[in-house]
Design a protein around this nucleic acid. Structure first.
Lengths: 342, 342
DNA sequence: ACCCATTTTGCATACGTATGAAAGGCTGAA
DNA sequence: TTCAGCCTTTCATACGTATGCAAAATGGGT
């Protein structure tokens, strides 16, 4: 039975070769003769030897670990990200060290420090913003950072996002084209760039049609807060005839309130649109019109950015903005004149 | 601006002390005099020094990394687990290295090998079963393993689960008490212990009431396969009057098919029960009766088991089975005689 | 002022691996 | 046979830290 503490020296001794030969055998890109390779293979197998990644990292300066900072997995967009990103990086021989930060951005800096302690080869920040001071430090330490689904003014940081503004705009255009004139908006966490950009695009779209925001609430990306916001927004008799909720997760909350608390029909009484296209959005119970963020593409771009930065050193920041796709489902419909005139 | 490659030697030189002093300053549980501590603190801050966790691990033999193997995050039970476990371990000074395995268990062994390469201090297996050979190797290498929400025959492995059998039993009792006599079951992945235990408990409960399973389908823990299973099960005129779906995730799929494809009312025509109590279960759109697995308690027990094993060495395996809680919501109701006699 | 007990400090080494430089071995051409 | 040239192998060292041990410094009591 193999013991953990088998080192390359043990293997070398058993195989009758030097430690460096063993190291070479396990290091891709180096050559060993057929004969010794076989001896080493046999010895390693017998002892159950596997190279110690940590010791290797100490020498090479590469840990093959990517730090991932994520705020909350309650929004089902992020589990998808974690899964796909983790898989994609595994395929490249990297692994993901997960750091959960609270939704408030205060402790992101401390967490990033902890990440750096692990000598990670890169960082993916899918959480709130980090201080520019810390960003600078990371940059100086040569650790590539990619903001995922987040933007920041600091131009030195690479980022991968969807076209949130364009998506918001597309949703406004859709609602307008369906004849809606009283459009509400339920915001996410005000500090998030996604929130800001989606709202901006949405408002631009309304303005282009000569409209303005009919009502506004804040849900902070949370289910229960979105519920509360929906209750307030639809309390009076003078309610919106359509609402854009900043992400799908909150949109479900809003739909649940409209249907089961207020007895409103979707889309007959109110059209609802969201953003992300998480799996439940296409479940019949919600059947939500939304903007699809292509997670696979976003992940691919993130990995590509990381790999490039790791290989060639961090050059100029790489900002990728991917187009989203409008997915029209059953939560939106042409506004019927009857609604208008009753 | 701080550079990454500041070592304890650099700090020592600047502070005018030895490298060991610096090491002691940063090692909890060791003592340094006030005076030198201050000099070191100042120097470290000036240089932006932080200890290299990897190098430290090489000496201490502890990486403060816990490997987490998880199969798929599509089922929203697992994101909760990842988040809570990660947070709980962060509080203990540990961090989580994530490994995604496919739902089929074939590559679990390879993945676990990769985990061991990182010299993790412990492994949490929330995925399919691992081979007993590999379990033995882990055991021999002194790396504690905790099976999360999984059981295995190998008694040497610690495990934390809910009382799946008891939960299944409780659901059967509930359905029976509501007057249901034609109870269907939609299974998860047949290789999973949760699937097996829940079904066993459910069948025992039915038998205790003189009943037997009315219909059975397989959903493999997947939304689309559960949909298909529901379609088959409810195709004919002689359909079940209640169905237990092995987890909430699949239960949503079943409910969607019943309501939106077959036009059945829940619970008027069919009672539906699930297992897990993931967040959407209490959303009004589903309002699902289910068994709550207390994630916080499960995580706490997992962390406790790990910490104990790490500290005191792996003693006897620790098997924790936590009680679930029956959460009765709107997807179940007393069967009305009208249904029976029509 | 002196000595003992205690704390603090520095020295040296070890952890497990990768890698440049040097030494060794082999092949083939003259 | 001899030697150049190339492929293998070994040697030695370095990565950044922790820690046992011995030396030095400190403090307190007489």
């Amino acid at each position: 039975m193999a013991n953990d503490k088998v080192t390359s020296n043990d293997v070398a001794r058993l195989a009758g070769v030097s430690q460096s030969a063993v190291s070479r055998y396990f290091t891709p890109g180096t050559s060993v003769s057929k004969k010794t390779a076989e001896k080493i293979r046999a010895a390693a197998e017998e002892l159950g030897y596997r190279p110690n990644v940590l010791a290797r990292s100490l020498i090479t300066g590469r840990s093959r670990i990517i730090g991932l900072v994520v705020a909350y997995l309650e929004n089902y967009f992020y589990p998808e990200v974690v899964e796909r990103l983790s898989k994609a990086l595994q395929d490249q021989g990297y692994h993901v060290l997960v750091f959960i930060s609270s939704i408030a951005s205060e402790n992101v800096d401390q967490i990033t420090q902890e990440i750096l302690d692990y000598q990670v080869d890169g960082i993916v920040l899918a959480s709130a913003n980090m201080s520019s001071e810390l960003a600078a430090r990371c940059h100086a330490s040569g650790v590539p950072i990619v903001l995922f689904n987040r933007l920041q003014d600091d131009v030195r940081l690479s980022a991968v996002t969807s076209d949130n503004r364009g998506g918001g705009r597309a949703l406004a255009d859709l609602l307008v084209s369906l004849g809606h004139t009283r459009c509400g908006y339920i915001a996410g966490f005000e500090g998030a760039s996604t929130q800001r950009d989606r709202e901006q695009g949405f408002c631009e779209g309304l303005e282009a049609a000569g409209l303005t925001l009919f009502a506004r609430g804040v849900g902070n990306f949370r289910y229960d807060e979105a519920q509360a916001a929906a209750r307030r927004m639809f309390a009076g008799p003078d309610r919106p005839d359509a609402v854009f909720v900043c992400n799908d997760h909150m949109a479900f909350a809003v739909m649940d309130v409209l249907r089961f608390e207020l007895g409103l029909a979707i889309p007959a009484d109110v059209s609802v649109v969201g953003f992300d296209d998480v799996p439940p959005a296409r479940w019949p119970a919600y059947n939500l019109t939304t903007i699809r963020q292509n997670v696979d593409d976003m992940v691919a771009e993130t990995v590509a950015t990381l790999m490039q930065s790791i290989k060639e050193g961090e050059g100029a920041a790489r900002r990728v903005i991917l187009d989203g796709t409008l997915v029209q489902r059953g939560s939106t419909a042409q506004k019927t004149p009857t609604d208008e005139t009753r």
